[in-house]
Amino acid sequence: MTRKNTDTNIETDGRNAQDSRNETGAVYGEEKSAADSTADKREILPADQTLPVKLLLIPLQGRPIFPGIFTPLMINSSDDTKVIEEAYAGDGYVGICMLRNDAENPSMNDLHEVGTVARIIKKINLPDGGLNVFISTLKRFRIRKALHSTAPMAAAVEYLDDEEDDTFEVKALTRALISEMKEVSENNPLFSEEMRLNMVNIDHPGKIADFIASILNIDKDEQQKVLEMLNVRQRMEQVLVYIKKEQELLRVQKKIQNELNEKVEKNQREYFLREEMKSIQEELG
């Protein structure tokens, strides 16, 4: 019997946890010898390859991770460590989903439905029992059915393609995004030259929007909103709005900084003038 969770629209299989684990692989089963080698590197494969329809899931308390990114990921939770070990011993794929809240022991209901599938490229065991893994994120997915609702979480997923809109407006939006983002990066020391070069070298409008959304100083819920946007044009328009907000924030910040500098300079001038007058009075007796 299948029941549907009305809070998250995720269907939950009524079978027991052992059955769910059997479908996705023995999460707590014996580790394969290939997983013991932390120096083993996996090839970074293109996103259009055949991806697994069942994924072990890693909940993120921080910001969502967008497709097309190679990034390190620190794993401290013992439950998440087991998931990584199991995935790494198998095909290397894992689903990354942002949490809706700060639940200490999250379940499937605490996850956003849309996440990113990633392939574990390298795994490094840390002295404290945690892991440092390097992942290559490939594609958006949506959770269709929970196979195991509590840690270690697993789900049946469907992969989401960008809704392309190769029009003059999209080309204009692409230029606008790059131009406006250059202005932001020039006024913000946190944006490195490497980031600017990466942005210019991306040749797909949807990926440009994803990259910019991933580095903008916006709320994680706003980033999740971008992640869930499949229509490329709408995604680009939304990211452009966030860029405009960032520009306004930088302008206000610069104005406040200039006013503060002027106040400090004025106070310094007044201080030196008072000291000078004091010295003159002492000389005159």
Rank of each mutant, 00 (worst) to 15 (best):
R100W: 04
V170S: 11
R251Y: 00
K82W: 05
G62L: 10
E282C: 00
L147E: 10
I212R: 01
I280S: 05
S185L: 12
I202N: 02
I256V: 14
R63V: 12
L284H: 03
A17S: 14
M181N: 05
E248L: 09
S107G: 15
V117C: 03
N76V: 12
D128M: 06
R235W: 04
E237N: 14
P106K: 11
A213V: 07
M98N: 00
H204Q: 11
A146V: 08
I96F: 13
S279F: 04
I218D: 02
K41T: 13
V232Q: 04
K4A: 08
L111Q: 02
G115W: 02
I84G: 01
E158A: 10
Q268Y: 06
Y28C: 02
D40N: 13
Q223T: 02
S192T: 12
I215C: 06
L190N: 11
E104S: 13
D128Y: 07
L57P: 00
A47D: 11
F141L: 06
A89N: 07
L240T: 01
D221V: 08
V94A: 12
E270Q: 14
V252Q: 15
L126D: 06
V170L: 14
P152M: 09
N187Q: 12
K207F: 08
N132E: 15
E31W: 01
T38Y: 06
L131N: 02
I10V: 09
E222W: 04
Q223Y: 01
D13Q: 13
L197W: 09
N258Y: 09
